[in-house]
Design a protein around this nucleic acid. Sequence first.
DNA 1: AACTAACGTACGAACGTTCGTTTTTTATTG
DNA 2: CAATAAAAAACGAACGTTCGTACGTTAGTT
Lengths: 197, 197
Amino acid sequence: MVQDQTNKLARADKSELRRQRIIEAAATLFILKGFHQTGMRDIAGQAGISLGNLYNHFKGKHEIIAAIAEMETAEMEPLLDLLETPGAKGRDVLIPFAKAYFRTCSLPENAALSAEIIAEIFRNPETGRAFSGTRKRLVTALEPHLPETFSNRAAAAGLVLDLIERAGQSAAGTSDRAHKDIETALLEMLMRTIEPV
Amino acid sequence: MVQDQTNKLARADKSELRRQRIIEAAATLFILKGFHQTGMRDIAGQAGISLGNLYNHFKGKHEIIAAIAEMETAEMEPLLDLLETPGAKGRDVLIPFAKAYFRTCSLPENAALSAEIIAEIFRNPETGRAFSGTRKRLVTALEPHLPETFSNRAAAAGLVLDLIERAGQSAAGTSDRAHKDIETALLEMLMRTIEPV
DNA sequence: AACTAACGTACGAACGTTCGTTTTTTATTG
DNA sequence: CAATAAAAAACGAACGTTCGTACGTTAGTT
């Protein structure tokens, strides 16, 4: 009579798990081929399910993209925490953040995906908007750690983020040596940026 | 008996002109919608010719993209000249270059196109390669103007270019005020980067 | 019995490309 | 100069695929 809560949860979990697998499959393909070169059939195939069933889990392609945006946002949370560490200020928080953010951005998956997203923002601001929420939070969190000598710290914070992101993209997929060189140059550049002249 | 050279040239010019119009039409649409969202019919329509005729001028879509890459390369020439001005060194050449390059990168057309290209490099290195020639030349030309304190000036030069490019992308399409703020922050950041600490 | 997940199929639209044909321009004759 | 053959440019229809999406049905769980 009493419903089996264990199994009920197990079922819901199972569904959630499959949903997650679909998202991962989609992400893999989006990274590899881009949003618009990836078809629903590709996603279904990669996830190991049928095309019809894919539509049982997602209303459409846009919903899958939105889910990936959400995932991306969640992954950024630890980095935001890093910036918002109470007490710590300036270089002591900025350099560790830069290292961590660079590491994230230079992961081939993230680099390719973020390139895809930036392009998407230009051609389709609506879809792009889903991704740009995190960005604003990063700028806000980063801003107070920059020197006051900047005439517009918010703009400078945006640039610092841009720099780290692009550095990561450039470093993605290169040899360990080149990767390290870029990271070193990035940190040297940031040190100069932070240092009051 | 003797061929009419005048008319012959006129004809060749006319054909070249039409070719150019097609490229411009394609560029407009690529910027607006991206490479893969732009169809051959769209391009033909925008250029004011028929679909069939489009294939009389280009073997296929890839050839149009290649032509645009070539155009892009040509547009970069003046900036390279700026960096290679004999005699001038360091800040005296870097700041003017940064201003000019930023201006170029923040033109909405260029910003969108370069975002598209970067994404394309990740998903299709082959096509992307057509675009990356200029980049190397810029790095080489920029490198000697950076301070020797960088442990790897080539890497640093790459970063400086990345920074300017992304700054331009961020500034593209924003208000004049925001645009100026970003440029100012960029220049401040570059001054700090160039200045020996 | 009710619900859900899974499936395969079907649809109309759009894709890049090819094709045969017509129109326009150029070159070569009479 | 007029007539005509040759070439180039332009066209629209059609090719086979693939696209995102919708639908009806079957199998399995509660």
